[in-house]
Each structure stands twice: as structure tokens, then as C-alpha cells.
């Protein structure tokens, strides 16, 4: 393996959750694989063809399926995973609402759902239930039946609007 850049391999500077990490990846590496190899294992592998949304991450604030995104194409962008939104001591309002409403069961779809909800709310801060449903339709969940997820996203939207108004 050479250290130079060619058209099949290069060293990328990826900005993930506000930190720049360097990683040498081949051109055909998906962002999903690249992130997991770097230890961002909160990005989940569910189907690798854009059917399930478990691997969703924010790229410049917009949710994408990382399984359908080539790692090279996000160089220079800001990538955010669910761990970049908050942590155990300071949760993001979406994370807090998912916890409080019991919207999490096995939790495997949760990172993707929260990312999709985040992306939807940045486009539409006051979503109707129909908007929430449409925003999450690319995220399959097999445990919850979505009822508590809708409640959690609506609650978080309110909290985020309030926080936005007061700050």
C-alpha cells in the first residue's frame, strides 16, 4: 500500500462529531464501513441498501444512509453520528425524549431514528404528526410500532423550539 493518493486509495481527513480524523480508505469504501472501522460503531449496519435507515448519519446537517455514501464524498463535510449529538450527562432533547417516552426497545434502530428526526426537524421545526411520519419512513423499527417514537419526536421538537427561542 502506498501512502500517496491515487484514484483507488487515499488518506481522508474526515470531520466526525467535530473532530478531524485521518484515515486511509479505498475509493469503494462506504461511509458506513469507514466510520465503523474508526470506532463509530453507533452507526449500525442493517441492510446495506438503503432500506432500513439504521446507518443514518448527518452530513452537513442532512441525514444520509451511510451505506449508500462513499467515504471519499464527505471529505470537507461535517459528519455527525448520534454520539455527536449528546452524551449520558448532556443528552440532546431528542435523546432525552426517546428515553423519557420509552421509545427505545432493542435500540438498534435508535441512532438512525434520532438522526433522521434531527434532519427532519432542522428542515421543519414544527412538524405535524404526518410530517414526523414522513420524515421517519426510511427508518425501519421492528420493536416499538413507532407510537412512542412519534410522541418522543413531537416532544423533542417542542423542547428544541423552546430552547431556540430562549437562547
Amino acid at each position: 500500500m502506498t501512502s500517496e493518493t491515487d484514484m483507488t486509495h487515499k488518506t481522508l481527513a474526515l470531520e466526525v462529531n467535530g473532530r478531524v480524523v485521518e484515515t486511509r480508505v479505498p475509493a469503494h469504501r462506504t461511509l458506513l464501513d469507514a466510520l465503523r472501522d474508526l470506532g463509530y460503531v453507533e452507526v449500525k449496519r442493517g441492510c446495506e441498501k438503503g432500506d432500513c435507515g439504521a446507518c443514518a448519519v448527518l452530513v452537513d446537517g442532512v441525514a444520509l444512509d451511510s451505506c449508500l455514501t462513499l467515504a471519499w464524498t464527505v471529505e470537507g463535510c461535517s459528519v455527525t453520528t448520534v454520539t455527536g449529538l449528546g452524551n449520558r450527562t448532556e443528552m440532546h432533547p431528542l435523546q432525552e425524549a426517546f428515553v423519557e417516552h420509552g421509545a427505545i426497545q432493542c435500540g438498534y434502530c435508535t441512532p438512525g431514528l434520532i438522526i433522521a428526526a434531527h434532519s427532519m426537524l432542522s428542515e421543519n421545526p414544527s412538524p405535524s404528526e404526518a410530517d414526523i411520519r414522513n420524515g421517519l419512513s426510511g427508518n425501519l423499527c421492528r420493536c416499538t410500532g413507532y407510537t412512542k417514537v412519534f410522541d418522543a419526536v413531537a416532544k423533542a421538537a417542542g423542547a428544541m423550539r423552546e430552547a431556540g427561542e430562549t437562547s
Binding site: D65, L68, S137, G138, N139
Partner: peptide, 11 residues
């Protein structure tokens, strides 16, 4: 609106 899910629509 009827196209895929959000992430697919975004891409």
C-alpha cells in the same frame, strides 16, 4: 413525497 424514505430522498 411518495419517494423512498427521508435519507433516500435526501440523496
Amino acid at each position: 413525497e411518495a419517494f423512498g424514505g427521508q435519507m433516500v430522498r435526501n440523496a
